Structures are given as C-alpha cells and as structure tokens.
Amino acid sequence: MANTPQAKKRIRRNERRAEINGARVSRIRTFVKKLETALAAGDKDAATTAIALVQPELARGVAKGVIHKNTAARKFSRLTKRLAALG
C-alpha cells in the first residue's frame, strides 16, 4: 500500500486515466468493428464512409498515447488493403 501522499495521489490518478484510456480504446475498436462488418458484408459504400471515420480515430488514439503509432499504421494499412480488394 502507498505510504506517501504523492504515491496515494498517483494511485488515484492512474485509476482515472485507466478509465479514460479504456474508453478511448473501446471507441477505436467500435469504429474498426463497424468497418470490418461493412467489409465482411461486401458493402463498399458503407466501408468507404466507415474508413473515413476510422482513420481520425486511430490518429487520435496515437496522439493521446493509447495505441502505438505503428499499430495504428498497421491496422489502417490492412483495412485499406481489404477495402481496395472489394474493388
């Protein structure tokens, strides 16, 4: 258990940040899932609009530090490639 006031404050802060960051990651996953369902259905129009929403969400996740830059780039690249394959 934390003894110093700073350590106690750190625990409180970490709990708040974990909740906020968890919500951010969940939001990103939701957008990606919408795109993946559109891709699985073969709906190019829905997938095109969904990818336009996924890209800024991934970028925001990188900016906020909840996902790594290369992870976001890899996800976006793979999703874009799947969209192009619908052709």
Rank of each mutant, 00 (worst) to 15 (best):
G22M: 00
A84I: 07
I28L: 15
T49G: 09
T80W: 09
K33L: 13
R82D: 00
H68G: 15
I51W: 00
K69M: 02
E36A: 07
V54R: 06
K75A: 12
N70K: 13
T49R: 14
Q6A: 15
K75T: 13
Q6R: 14
G65Y: 02
L58I: 01
L83I: 02
K64S: 09
N21V: 01
N3I: 12
P5I: 08
P56T: 01
E36P: 03
R16F: 08
E36Q: 14
R29F: 01
I20E: 10
R27P: 04
E57A: 13
S77G: 15
L53N: 12
S26H: 12
G87P: 03
L35F: 06
T71F: 13
S26E: 15
T49S: 10
H68Q: 14
R10V: 00
E19H: 03
K33P: 06
A85G: 07
T48F: 10
V32C: 10
R60S: 10
L35D: 00
T4Y: 02
I20M: 11
E36D: 07
A7G: 04
A7I: 05
V32W: 08
R60Q: 09
R24C: 05
G65Q: 04
A46M: 11
K81E: 15
A7D: 06
R60C: 00
M1R: 11
L79Q: 10
A85N: 08
L39G: 02
R10S: 07
A18S: 11
I11Y: 08
K75D: 11
S77A: 05
A7R: 06
R82W: 07
L83D: 07
L35A: 03
I11D: 11
T30V: 15
K8T: 01
E57C: 02
G22W: 00
R78A: 11
N70S: 12
N14K: 13
T71R: 14
E19M: 03
L83Y: 08
K33Q: 13
T48Y: 08
G42L: 04
I28T: 06
V62P: 01
T49W: 04
D45T: 13
I67G: 09
T49H: 09
D43R: 03
R78V: 04
D45E: 15
L86E: 05
A23S: 11
A52Y: 06
L35N: 01
R78S: 13
Q55F: 03
V25A: 03
V62L: 04
S77Q: 03
M1Y: 09
N3F: 10
A41W: 07
A85F: 05
G87F: 00
A52G: 05
A84F: 07
S77R: 11
A46Q: 13
P5A: 11
K75S: 09
T49E: 14
A2K: 07
A72H: 09
D45H: 11
A38K: 07
